[in-house]
């Protein structure tokens, strides 16, 4: 009988974890190309613009998520490492429990800014083998030289001067001067169901792919591209 209760309890808890309710804040990650949503779950994304941009792979790490009221942190997610993958819809939604927040018990959860990092910090990069989204089987770790790949974007664009207009951007690097970790801070009016949008078009427009269509290792250029990538995030009101 006690076992049965434990199982029912566990199932309820698991259910509560998986679905948002009044006690949780939902952070939705939405990847777009201009006006169009990028959903790679059923194959590559094809844009009908003059660049004929195609996106095959779009994966990146969001880490150290913080919610702030002006300049004070009201919530900092513990063990905050999320691999966002445009081909996995489940990876595009992050839940934050209000009861872990300062002042969250009132149910108001006041915050007006969101801060997060794009990529993996240097301490984690030198910390050995990790689990979950940081496991090297997730395909976001360089094998020939230690370090996480913060951002993977692969596809085609007429901007690229490579064969078949391919581009393959693997942005990473944790050691100075090639530390490509980026911190993003954005204001938000919405506090319950926040949509963080990444506009890949804005990023590609900023990149000179005539010379640099394949980036596969830490470099100053990878740092520059990482800055462009971070600049492509914004909060959209629903």
């Amino acid at each position: 009988m006690r076992n049965l209760f434990a199982i029912v309890f566990a199932v309820c808890m698991a259910h509560a974890k998986a679905t948002a309710n009044d006690s949780e804040i939902v952070l939705n990650i939405r990847c777009v190309y201009g006006e169009h949503q990028i959903d790679l779950s059923r194959g590559p994304f094809q844009a009908n613009d003059e660049l004929q941009t195609q996106i095959d792979v779009l994966r990146f790490y969001l880490s150290d998520i913080q919610l702030l009221q002006n300049d004070s942190i009201v919530y900092r997610e513990p063990n905050s490492f999320h691999l966002v993958d445009a081909s996995l819809t489940g990876s595009m939604r992050i839940l934050v429990d209000k009861f872990n927040m300062n002042g969250g018990k009132s149910g108001k959860a006041p915050f007006n800014k969101i801060r997060f990092s794009v990529g993996i910090d240097s301490a984690t990069n030198v910390g050995g083998a990790m689990a979950g989204d940081l496991d090297p089987t997730r395909g976001m770790y360089w094998t020939w030289q230690s370090g996480y790949i913060n951002v993977k974007l692969e596809g085609k664009s007429k901007k690229s001067s490579a064969a078949a207009h391919d581009f393959q951007l693997h942005l990473g690097g944790y050691a100075e001067p090639n530390n490509s970790l980026q911190i993003v801070m954005i204001r938000t009016k919405e506090v319950n169901n926040v949509t963080i949008e990444l506009d890949v078009k804005k990023f590609i427009d900023a990149v000179n792919m005539g010379e640099n269509h394949h980036v596969m290792s830490p470099s100053l250029f990878a740092v520059l591209l990482s800055k462009f990538f971070a600049d492509a995030f914004s909060v959209k009101s629903q």
Binding site: N125, V126, G127, G128, A129, P136, Y141, T143, W144, Q145, S146, G147
Partner: peptide, 15 residues
């Protein structure tokens, strides 16, 4: 090139 003993084996496995 490898910064931690844990990550060392990845290199020969993938090479």
């Amino acid at each position: 090139a490898i910064n931690h003993l844990d990550m060392q084996a990845l290199a020969p496995i993938s090479s």
